[in-house]
Simulated scan of single mutants.
Amino acid sequence: MTRVVFLLVPGVHLLDLAGPAQVFSSAVDFGADYELSYVGDSVSVPSHQGVPLGASTELPSLEVDDLLVVPGWRSSTLVGTGALSARALAWVRAHHDCGGMVASVCAGADALGRAGLLDGRRCTTHHELQDELERRYPAARVVRDVLYVEDGRVVTSAGIASGIDLALHLVAVRNGPSVAAAVARTMVVYARRNGDDQQASVLLRHRSHVNETVHRVQDVIESRLTDRLSLAELASLTGCSERTVTRLFGRATGMTPLKYQQALRVERAEHLIGQGATVEVAARTVGFEDARMLRRLRSR
């Protein structure tokens, strides 16, 4: 039996906790042997979303194979937030010193830093907190814009949904990729992402503008990802001239419609390759004629 113990911090994000907890509890349905428990400095821990969470104030004695997870809390800053007692932080440190693995989600990385576990290690956190984490722990190497980082039995993730990616990775390592894939399917997770995948997808990075014409062009490209779309066709569908579409699209996204489609295709192909597809199969699945173009775009 492997215990997965979540250390709950006041203001904890529900998804930071619930995502990994769901992964490990679902893994039990596929033959994994996990027991989940929840501890904190008080018996009732308020979540940021307003749901009070029950916790044990008794910090258990952990075995080497047990996993300790610190979910993140909602805050625009790290300093002065995430209250944890010296006793709890010493317990986190002691588990790692005895050979155990410690993980964090989002702002939870700050708790690991206060426990002295980030010095000399690679780590990450939510992109809004990376600068501050770097300032607070100058001896750590903060890896930017990735989903999770594992270094010396310390695993840190970007936050919110990336906690699911972190937990699936740990299940894959401990129980095999087939169990992790089965858990991802039962959780209806789109794809099990690699740790070095970017925190923001192509869609998120280039959809933050407010130009409705460009949004309509993007809708067409995304719904017809594998089609050969001409600029003339996109212009016709939006009721604009080709020149106007090019100008508006470039101003809103910093790229042409063709480059946007290529970026989406490459990102989708990376997911397929990560799930075991060959480069050739992935290239053809996303709309490239063969793997040569995909290889060129990936190399950039």
Results as ranks from 00 to 15, higher is better:
V5T: 15
V9L: 03
P10G: 06
V12L: 04
D16Q: 00
P20R: 08
P20A: 04
V28R: 13
V28I: 13
V28H: 01
S42H: 15
P46Q: 10
A55M: 10
S56P: 03
T57I: 06
L68V: 13
V69D: 06
V70F: 00
W73Q: 00
W73C: 04
V79G: 00
G80W: 12
L84V: 00
L84T: 02
L89A: 11
W91Y: 09
H95F: 12
D97R: 11
C106R: 01
A107E: 05
D110I: 08
A115G: 06
L117I: 10
L118E: 06
G120L: 01
R122F: 01
H126C: 11
L129I: 03
Q130A: 09
E132W: 10
R135M: 04
Y137H: 10
R141N: 14
V142E: 10
G152D: 02
G152K: 04
R153Y: 05
V155S: 05
V155F: 02
A158M: 04
I160C: 07
A161R: 12
S162G: 01
D165A: 03
D165F: 13
A167M: 03
V179C: 09
A180R: 11
A180F: 00
A181D: 07
V183Y: 05
R185T: 03
T186S: 11
M187L: 14
V189Y: 07
Y190C: 00
A191D: 09
D196W: 15
L204Y: 12
H209S: 02
V210E: 14
N211A: 12
T213Y: 14
H215F: 10
Q218D: 02
Q218F: 11
V220G: 00
V220A: 05
I221P: 02
S223L: 07
R224Y: 01
L229A: 12
A232M: 04
A232H: 14
S236T: 14
S236V: 01
R247S: 05
R247C: 00
R247N: 11
G250I: 02
G250S: 07
G254T: 14
K259Q: 15
K259D: 10
Q262E: 12
Q262T: 12
L264Q: 07
L264E: 09
R265V: 08
V266I: 01
E267I: 03
Q275I: 01
V286N: 08
V286C: 07
G287A: 11
L294N: 07
R300K: 13
